[in-house]
Amino acid sequence: MHDLIVSPYLDGDHLVVSPGRQGGLRLSRAKYDELAHADEPPAWLAEAAAGLWGDLALRPYREKVLVRPLTGYEYVRATYELNLGCNYDCEHCYLGVKEFKSLPWPDREKMLHILRDVGVLWLQLTGGEPTIDRLFCETYGLAYEMGMMLSILSNGSKLHEPKVLDLLTTHRPHEITVSVYGATEAAYDGLTRRPGSFRKFHKGVSAAVEAGLPLKFSLIVTNHSAPEVTKMQALADGWGIPYVTFVNMSPTIYGGAETLPSQSVEHLRKRKVFTGCNAGHTFFHVDPHGTASICKIGREPNVRLIEEGAEGLARLGQIADSLLLRQGGCTGCTLQGTCGTCMPLVQLYRQAKSPLARYCQHREREEVNTP
């Protein structure tokens, strides 16, 4: 299996990366062409790789160095929801109805080939809980084999299971982000509404730390877990795991309001100014049914990826541009240049009849506090 991936990137750049390792090399087109046609690793490649990652076995060259072809597309990142099902029932979950539905293997295999063929180098596997998906290992294994740098969003509950742990230690991910719902069993299980979930989380994370897997924590701060923020931070520090805090609760992907009462108002954070993003242009999202959208929030309009193939993605850029335009009550706002919420997310908050202060944090405007 390959130790290096050579891939086209954005704006004519090319990258060399190594699965499970940080850092990379930026290449010119001439260097990329040299590697694409080489039968032996050039001395400069071996020297540069050793400087970044230590001595790697780059022979036999065609096995150890995977050179991905030029595609004509500039999609370099994607997220893939394997399944909306989950073994938890968290009060804040933005997925709403958690259905255990997903693509059968032939369609899933076809979809992964499409992702490769349009240039996706960085692929995030998410859910629901991706590790409970019946085809998680097969999906991960094929994406890895195709030369994708994989990250996983997980609750950590399955990381100790031998099949999953062996897969992730032999084919190392770029990153595993584990959501943390509390620092004690009572608080954690109370938020997930699943007795025993804290013990599974602890067991999974302990096994991953022992295996040296690249973990990061996302500390979820809701009304339920807010009293334990300091303890959650201490838990992360005790394991030596870096963390970020997630504090702003969103409506469900269907515009449902059932998640909003979980918001810890005192932890509501003013978002950074939204200056645009490359959703639909250089990255996109795929749901469990093989439907591609600009991101996890802006799910409609979309592209039926299995039926339309790579050619269908050509519409995503135009879809993105239309979705990100300020509209409705935002079009006349003189403060929209410093707004921190993208329009697809604004639309979900509006559908949920959320208080204005939850997503429009300009205190100069009149707040709408009716449910």
Results as ranks from 00 to 15, higher is better:
Tyr140Ser: 09
Arg116Met: 08
Cys360Ile: 05
Leu348Gln: 06
Thr252Phe: 12
Gln263Ala: 08
Gly204Ser: 00
Asp89Glu: 12
Glu161Arg: 09
Gly340Arg: 10
Leu268Met: 14
Ile176Val: 12
Val368Thr: 14
Met148Tyr: 00
Thr177Gly: 11
His2Ala: 14
Ala352Val: 10
Val118Arg: 02
Val368Phe: 08
Tyr80Ser: 02
Ser7Gly: 12
Lys200Asp: 11
Gly312Trp: 11
Gly204Ala: 04
Pro173Tyr: 14
Ser218Ile: 01
Tyr349Val: 06
Gly329Cys: 05
Tyr144Met: 01
Arg68Glu: 13
His267Ser: 12
Glu91Tyr: 14
Gln347Leu: 15
Arg363Glu: 14
Ala226His: 04
Tyr80Thr: 03
Leu121Arg: 05
Val346Trp: 14
Glu145His: 11
Leu153Ser: 05
Thr139Trp: 13
Gln351Ser: 15
Gly204Gln: 01
Lys31Ser: 05
Cys277Gln: 02
Thr370Ala: 04
Glu258Thr: 10
Leu345Gly: 02
Thr126Gly: 01
Leu15Ser: 01
Gln318Phe: 03
Ala46Pro: 04
Gly54Cys: 12
Arg68His: 04
Ile220Arg: 03
Trp53Arg: 08
Leu142Val: 09
Ser28Val: 04
Thr139Leu: 05
Asp107Leu: 07
Arg21Thr: 02
Gly312Asp: 13
Thr139Arg: 14
Asp33Met: 03
Lys200Cys: 10
Leu168Lys: 03
Ser179Asn: 14
Thr192Val: 08
Arg194Ser: 07
Asp321Thr: 04
His14Phe: 15
Pro60Gln: 00
Leu84Asn: 13
Val17Gln: 09
Ile152Met: 09
Tyr88Gly: 09
Arg315Ser: 00
Val65Gly: 00
Ser18Asp: 05
Ala187Trp: 12
Phe136Gly: 02
Arg62Ile: 02
Lys353Gly: 01
Asn87Leu: 03
Leu159His: 02
Gly72Val: 03
Ala292Trp: 11
Met343Ile: 12
Thr259Gln: 01
Pro242Ser: 10
Thr169Lys: 02
Leu10Phe: 15
Glu74Pro: 04
Ser102Val: 11
Ala36Ile: 01
Arg194Pro: 02
Ile306Met: 04
Leu66Val: 02
Leu153His: 07
Glu266Asp: 15
Ala143Arg: 03
Ser250Thr: 15
Glu367Trp: 09
Glu47Gln: 14
Ala30Ser: 09
Arg194Met: 11
Ala48Gly: 08
Thr341Tyr: 09
Met232Pro: 07
Leu168Cys: 01
Leu121Pro: 07
Met343Ala: 11
Arg365Lys: 08
Arg108Pro: 01
Gly317Gln: 00
Gly127Cys: 01
Thr259Arg: 01
Leu27Glu: 00
Arg193Asp: 10
Glu308Asp: 13
Lys64Pro: 09
Tyr181Asn: 15
Ile306Trp: 00
Ala38Cys: 00
Pro104Leu: 10
Arg116His: 11
Tyr349Thr: 06
Tyr9Ala: 14
Arg269Phe: 12
Leu356Gly: 08
